[in-house]
Design a binder for these strands. Structure first.
Lengths: 223, 223
DNA sequence: ACCTGAACACCGTTCAAGT
DNA sequence: ACCTGAACACCGTTCAAGT
């Protein structure tokens, strides 16, 4: 994906210092999945704020306008990246696998947690917009099915599902390194810890995903 | 805040069609709070994507660079807007008021919900970054105190607090009109509802804040 | 100290033109 | 159909200069 000089061919009429003009027509080695992969690399190396159409194009070795053949706009690119990431987690597979509904739900939380823990850019992307796309819908459907299977009353299933997902995002947003961490640090420095004893108190975290059991208690024990 | 022509004074040497050059020195009627108010107006009328330094400056009747006297950068402006909004809700007042911890917590959820329901730009802003600033910390502190008062074990207080806040944001993000709603619609249109029966099933929502009681059950009944 | 105006290095998006 | 290159209307931020 990174500048494969395939069909540029020999170009007798240029000096070695010039950046070599590319041919115009179809390249053949370009598709949506490859561009999404390039965009994913950009998010992971430059963060969500670094995810620009022009950088994705550079990463993929094409001109910015070429992306408009595969995406309707920049938001479409970002959504595709988020949905592809979610698909890579294989969450529906976990939810339809062995174990009680509860252990499967916990496994989903742990999987997503560990996958996003060291990817602040992807976390920021996932949290910045409602998840849309085939993988997102497939996960949501599997989640609803699991909660139904767990015996949740139908009218509480949907509420339970989004409580779970937003819990995960909320936990990660407060736990994993966040992109706007500098501003948060600035805000903390201006405050007196004595005024906010509970907020500033050091808390030993034993559970890698604190609150998960608490939440599962509340959701699954509802009748 | 909108173009008060105070100390511009008479300017004999300009034609009526020209946009009138402003004086350079201090204006006197400018401060952080007023600029935050101008920025808030921009968020509410133009959305989070419309919240730009240049538009805030225009709304406040100054030059873009003038904002750098009061804010370190654009993120600082956005954080100040979010923190000021949170302060305007008076949430700590509710949490220290009458009623059981549970009804107070529910009142906080309802208050934030109704305040953000018709303000998609502010919702997008609040959800886009970790809440930082004095009002945000004051709310967090009051929330921790309330959960402690409710009898939650100390090691679960912090988890309960962020589960509550992220629940609220998650609920609003899926309920209130979202800025990136167009992309979500696009994604839904490409799917067959028959493949996602539970996701596409119409659900009658009786509780204006579905899941809130479910969540409070889980948090407050933990031992 | 505060604010302006010009300038810089970006950005998403459009469009005509080439292959 | 696919891609380029130029162009347009933005954007945040810097900096010297005026008051």
């Amino acid at each position: 994906m990174t500048h494969p000089p395939t069909n540029t061919g020999p170009d007798p009429e240029r000096t070695p210092t010039q950046p070599r003009p590319r041919r115009r027509g179809p390249r053949g080695d370009l598709d949506r999945a490859g561009l999404v992969a390039a965009a994913t690399r950009v998010v992971d190396t430059q963060g969500l704020t670094g995810l620009t159409l022009r950088k994705v194009a550079t990463e993929a070795g094409v001109t910015p306008t070429a992306l408009y053949t595969y995406f309707v706009d920049m938001a479409d690119v970002a959504n595709a990246v988020g949905d592809a990431f979610l698909g890579s987690l294989g969450l529906p597979g976990i939810l339809t696998g062995p174990g009680t509904p509860r252990v499967r739900l916990r496994a989903v939380l742990d999987r997503a947690h560990s996958a996003l823990m060291d990817r602040p850019g992807m976390l920021a992307l996932i949290a910045s917009r409602p998840l849309a796309g085939p993988h997102s819908f497939a996960f949501n459907e599997a989640l609803l099915r699991t909660l139904t299977e767990a015996g949740l009353p139908p009218e509480r299933v949907r509420a339970g599902a989004y409580v779970l997902t937003c819990f995960l995002l909320g936990h990660l947003a407060t736990t994993a390194p966040h992109e706007s961490g500098a501003a948060l640090e600035r805000a903390r420095e201006g405050l007196d810890p004595a005024d906010y004893p509970l907020s500033f108190a050091p808390v030993p975290i034993d559970d890698p995903l604190p609150g998960a059991e608490l939440l599962l208690d509340g959701i699954l024990n509802a009748r």
